[in-house]
Write a protein that binds this DNA or RNA. Structure first.
Length: 335
DNA sequence: CGCGTTTGACCAGCGC
DNA sequence: GCGCTGGTCAAACGCG
């Protein structure tokens, strides 16, 4: 196993190019061939055969790995589909509950603490809050881990019981809380979680349990949208931003690419890096479209995963390492 | 000038 | 009742 051969293997990718035996096994310079051709021909034939056998093994390994990856992607897509189905079912059930409870009468006040009649109070404009009631029986949590180009995003959507002491019981029923974990650059001090929506920051506070400040955002895309977002760096891992969403959007995701130069460009640009939008309310209308597009989405997701994996140098290095080790195991011990 | 962010003050719930 | 704490308000400020 010569060094050049091994160096050649460092370029291994999922699309291993094993169809270059002639080039790589290429004979030495022509003059040398003329000198050694007769003398070395028999021995070289053996070497070529051995190398070709190794190549075949590598090819087999490559195929196996590719199959494994395909199977993995297929399983992931399948699981993703099941998760989507569960989410849709849960959302449908919750919407049902919302209808039944809101018919009962008193709509909860949008303001938890004060009955102010400030200009921001949108209760009048939004007589039936779009918030879906959380499933009271048993928490429902979904965690999806996707590795986009830059950020690792883990989204956990939870219908949680009253976690906050301050939140009244009825509010608990009416608010769906979701958490989004975003891997952020530690040097980036901004508490901006890029999720494709437009947020307006209305406050910042240092909390007791975390030295990092917590930022409070409101959805600024639709005045009637009462979704709130809290963003705070994780106390354990400062590179992780924890975005807590309260409520659900009652509007579609804003257009991704907007005007240039505006501050919104940062959010718009963020859309590119964020493959998974935040937990959006799955209203019946959106739900149907989501179901219609789920197959395509899953396919896109699988393709994205495959592309991400193939572009990930770490994955590539690990694959090369595994392949090299396997090849060294299988290859005749000529060293 | 309009819009978004910053930041200190205020409010309300909770525990003691 | 008091203090602590989280959440919110709104004036001041900055930026395009």
């Amino acid at each position: 196993m010569d060094e050049q051969w091994m160096m050649g293997q460092t370029s291994l990718s999922l699309g291993l190019n094993i169809a270059r035996p002639k080039a790589r096994l290429g004979a030495p310079p022509a003059t040398k061939v003329l000198v050694e051709e007769d003398f070395m021909s028999s021995r070289k034939n053996h070497e070529v055969e051995a190398l070709e056998a190794e190549l075949r093994r590598v090819g087999e390994e490559n195929r196996r790995l590719s199959d494994m990856l395909r199977a993995l992607v297929a399983k992931y897509s399948d699981l993703q589909g099941k998760v989507s189905g569960m989410m849709a079912a849960a959302s449908a059930a919750n919407n049902h509950q919302t209808l039944s409870t809101s018919e009962g009468g008193s709509a909860a006040s949008p303001s938890r603490k004060r009955a102010r009649s400030d200009s921001l109070d949108t209760a009048g404009r939004n007589p039936s809050p779009p918030l879906a009631a959380a499933g009271s029986g048993g928490g429902f949590a979904v965690s999806v881990n996707v590795g986009p180009d830059r950020d690792q995003v883990e989204c956990t959507s939870v219908h949680e019981p009253c976690s906050s002491k301050r939140v009244r019981a009825d509010e608990c029923k009416a608010s769906r809380v979701s958490k989004l974990y975003v891997h952020a650059d530690p040097s980036d001090l901004s508490l901006v979680v890029k999720d494709g929506y437009q947020w307006r920051k209305y406050g910042q506070k240092v909390t007791k349990d975390n030295p990092c400040p917590r930022a409070y955002f409101r959805c600024s895309f639709a005045p009637s949208c009462q979704v709130k977002k809290k963003v705070q760096r994780s106390a354990e891992d400062k590179t992780v931003l924890v975005a807590t969403y309260e409520g659900e959007h009652n509007h579609a995701q804003p257009p991704k690419l907007q005007g240039t130069g505006s501050r919104k460009s940062a959010e718009a640009a963020a859309v590119r890096a964020s493959p998974a939008p935040p937990p959006v309310q799955q209203q019946p209308r959106q739900q149907s479209t989501a179901e219609a597009g789920s197959a395509a989405d899953r396919k896109n997701l699988a393709e994205q995963m495959a592309a991400t994996l193939t572009m990930d140098p770490g994955f590539k290095a690990a694959l090369v390492s595994a392949l090299s080790g396997r090849i060294l195991e299988l290859s005749p011990s000529d060293s």
